[in-house]
Design a binder for these strands. Structure first.
Lengths: 196, 196
DNA sequence: ACCTGAACACCGTTCAAGT
DNA sequence: ACCTGAACACCGTTCAAGT
């Protein structure tokens, strides 16, 4: 940090904007409310980000970078790939735990018709990161033939995102847990008791 | 119809509002653009709907009623429940085929923090209708124990909604087809070749 | 470098007035 | 019954001007 008073305005804008976007989407992210949270005026945000599109892209970029680091940490924490897969849905559960928020990528995916191209690009990178990680771990877990790993990875990613969306619409985390358990029972995810 | 000039203004508002909401969500639905599509002025909409919340609720109500009728038609068309389940994802595919639109319920689910309560209620009814139909057909197909049918129905609904969301964010219908096929391979949906 | 006042365009809503 | 122009309060966004 530059001084003793905590993170700078740019960083605080990024953090606050992420939280707002996860709850209300890109279109629901407005500079007056955001500025108020940060403690500056709306116009001041433009000193740090050239436009709303620029801010949105920065928020989405930071989001996939953080999510990528979290997945790597999961892998470092447990060398067992089946265990990693079992814990994967937990990364989506955390958003629901935090004021019933949605994955930034999911809420922005729903807005894709109204997203600036530079934001869309970062949202797609988020999906790419998730699928690449799942694909790698699925192969390590010997859950699929290596030729099918990416297809299965995409299926898991889409299904977990769907579970989060549905659970959020009911403000019901236990519904998310129930849906994940159903994915395990059906064989999409490795089983919760015996290794898949 | 009242006269020879086609559906009335109220009906045209409902149809146009549904199309806009499926592309841009409830928050992206505005009376000025909507009125222009219908060919009247924004203020005239208030002659047919008391408020935006009222219009949103009417749109969502009509949407689940239509979807319910479509599912019943599917069931009437084919008496084989496994065949019905196989064709279920097609009802979601149709929205993507129509200008890459999303299920109204999914896009509104993503907006759930900002939805008037009377709209939320109708969105949840949509999910209830889908789950009830799937549950009934799963039992008829003997794919699950009757005690688990609703849980499995919810899983299928969430996974298909997720597939639609992800495919739309890439504007890629073939990705939707691929995801559905993966759900079949993994056992979540009945297989595409042999009966499940 | 960092911030802001003031303006602009837009949106949901209302209402008196039209036919 | 059905529609509209005009207005109101409000909000997202921008930029020239401040320190």
């Amino acid at each position: 940090m530059k001084n003793g008073s905590g993170p700078g305005a740019k960083e605080r804008i990024l953090v606050a904007a992420t939280a707002i976007a996860q709850a209300h989407g890109y279109s629901g992210l407005n500079f007056r409310d955001l500025a108020e949270v940060v403690g500056i005026k709306a116009a001041s945000i433009y000193h740090h980000f050239a436009s709303k599109a620029d801010l949105g892209a920065a928020v989405a970029r930071r989001y996939w970078q953080d999510s990528s680091a979290a997945l790597d940490a999961l892998l470092a924490q447990s060398s067992d790939p089946v265990d990693c897969l079992r814990r994967y849905p937990g990364t989506f559960r955390k958003a629901l735990e935090s004021d019933n928020r949605l994955c930034l990528c999911s809420i922005m995916a729903a807005e894709s018709d109204d997203l600036p191209e530079i934001v869309t690009k970062e949202v797609q990178t988020f999906a790419d990161v998730q699928v690449a990680w799942l694909s790698k771990v699925l192969v390590a877990a010997a859950m699929v033939d290596s030729g099918n790993s990416e297809q299965r990875a995409r299926a898991i990613f889409a299904a977990v995102a769907g579970a989060q969306l549905i659970a959020r619409s009911r403000s019901d985390i236990s519904l998310f847990d129930e849906l994940i358990e159903s994915y395990r029972v059906s064989g999409l995810l490795p089983g919760s008791r015996l290794s898949g």
